[in-house]
């Protein structure tokens, strides 16, 4: 996920780097305050009420509330952008998981089923409708987007997009029994020409 190959994964990776920097700064601040308490000069003077204002109202309440409000707002805004909203150009595909393989169907080529390889067009948003025949699985192509679970009786939709043609590894990421390790798949992104060829059932 640190090597994104699509807009969703890129957004999340950027979020991570920002949070890492912010988190690192907060950690350093807290550790510095902690260690300064052990300096030789000993107890710092100050009335009890003032101390409570600084440590509890200021650092304990004010500081995290500010940081968290900013973080939460940006997180929800980012989350909104990743949702599968209706849009032109969206390609619909289906994914059905079971112990231990993946089968994929295509709205633009009814009747077409592929096993273990999900074909998508590069540079276009794709909505994957995900479900399962048996236990819970999870659809995850880390370089393209986050994951969503395949749950019996439910259909979950994940929006993903690959910038460039190529093969991207995917895996189930909810423990599903002894075959879990090998329960992977490949997302194969095509350029427009190859995508048309794939839909027309030509060998790819």
């Amino acid at each position: 996920m640190l090597d994104p190959a699509g807009p969703a994964a890129e957004t999340i990776a950027r979020l991570w780097w920002i949070m890492l920097a912010g988190g690192g700064a907060i950690f350093v601040l807290v550790m510095a305050l902690l260690l300064l308490a052990f300096r030789e000069s000993g107890a710092e003077a100050g009335a009890g009420a003032r101390r409570e204002r600084v440590w509890i109202l200021g650092l304990g309440l004010g500081f995290p509330l500010t940081v968290l409000a900013a973080l939460l707002a940006s997180a929800l805004w980012v989350g909104e952008r990743l949702l599968p909203r209706p849009a032109p150009e969206v390609v619909g595909v289906g994914a059905v998981a079971r112990q231990w393989d993946w089968r994929f169907t295509y709205d633009d080529a009814p009747g077409r089923v592929t096993r273990g390889v999900l074909h998508i067009p590069a540079g276009r948003p794709v909505d994957v409708r995900i479900t399962t025949e048996d236990v819970i699985h999870s659809f995850w192509a880390p370089r393209l987007a986050g994951k969503i679970d395949a749950i019996p009786g439910h259909v979950n939709v994940l929006r993903l997009e690959a910038w460039a043609p190529g093969d991207y590894a995917g895996a189930s990421s909810e423990y599903n029994g002894p075959g879990y390790l090998g329960h992977g798949f490949i997302v194969r992104a095509h350029d427009p020409e190859a995508w048309r060829a794939f839909l027309a059932d030509a060998p790819t």
Partner: peptide, 26 residues
Amino acid sequence: FATFVIGGLTGVMVAVVPFDWQVHDT
């Protein structure tokens, strides 16, 4: 302090929904 503060910070990170979509179950 050192350990728990880091755990708390990563906890806030995974409370961020899109980030959790990536790291959940990893």
